[in-house]
Design a protein around this nucleic acid. Structure first.
Lengths: 147, 147
DNA sequence: CGCTATTATATTGTGTACAATATTATCACA
DNA sequence: TGTGATAATATTGTACACAATATAATAGCG
């Protein structure tokens, strides 16, 4: 009758599962690094650009302050980064890698290849998937802005 | 240097964002129904097959007991379903829709179309996306089993 | 200069996820 | 027929997500 409500017809459910499955593929490797998946994403940002603000980090990961704030506090406690108020503007909190956080990049360098081999995607498949998913994400963003 | 660690090169981050964006598209519609997204998935299963066990629900949603158990308890409290031990096997808990839960299907019937129009996907695009993502999910499952 | 609006971050409260452990009921078999 | 193994679900503890609210610092403006 109403096929539209069948679980198997929900594309959203596919994304929901794929997201969790991918994260579970990361887990053994990230456990070795002592990181959770969102913490790994934070580290990727900091390895790219150190000494950023909490607000900027939230923008890059598309996470709000309610998620970011406790996340970076846990990472500070774990010795991965330091939080400090900007003397120029005391509202701003700047995030800096510790030695431990910087050093972890060496170990993390092998993670992308490890995952790629888990997923068993050729470079072409990877590029196509990345292109398709980027397009989909941008389409969603455009819709949300009501364009 | 090591482009592989750039956030923008992580396909996983695309799926992470797409999953959250899609759920946020659902939110206004599900708020109307008084459901969260995982609760909506539970309702989809129950509208398909009523009187199922907690274990079966967990299998269909690929969620473990630590997630399912409190989830269905909250839904029981909300009056959407009833939990009862199976007299044949007291270990088993069976889930049944209440009148309210059954009735909610009428209102929910419009959700899939509402989402489709949010995503602005043609039927062909939807079918292709579903096919591609199903294939990807199955590929991940095969990898995990070590085949 | 003082006061209000805005900005950056934090906190609170609720609801997932998931690993690890606990609990209770059934099963298998000596 | 006990009794240890197994199965189904629950609980505990930790870590996100996110809406709503709070807090503190800066900016803007009369």
């Amino acid at each position: 009758m109403n096929d539209k409500l069948l679980l198997s017809n929900q594309v959203c459910f596919l994304f929901y599962q794929i997201d969790r499955e991918i994260i579970s593929l990361y887990r053994p490797f990230l456990d070795t690094l002592g990181l959770t998946y969102p913490q790994y994403l934070v580290m990727l940002v900091l390895w790219e650009e150190d000494n950023i603000t909490v607000g900027h980090l939230g923008e890059r990961l598309a996470l709000d302050t309610g998620t970011i704030s406790p996340l970076v506090k846990r990472m500070e406690k774990a010795g991965l980064l330091a939080r400090s108020r900007d003397p120029q503007d005391e509202r701003v909190v700047r995030l800096t890698l510790t030695e431990k956080g910087t050093a972890l990049k060496e170990t993390a360098a092998s993670v992308p290849d490890a995952l790629a081999s888990c997923l068993d995607l050729s470079h072409e498949e990877y590029l196509k998937l990345k292109k398709d998913m980027t397009a989909l994400l941008e389409k969603i963003h455009r819709q949300k802005c009501g364009l």
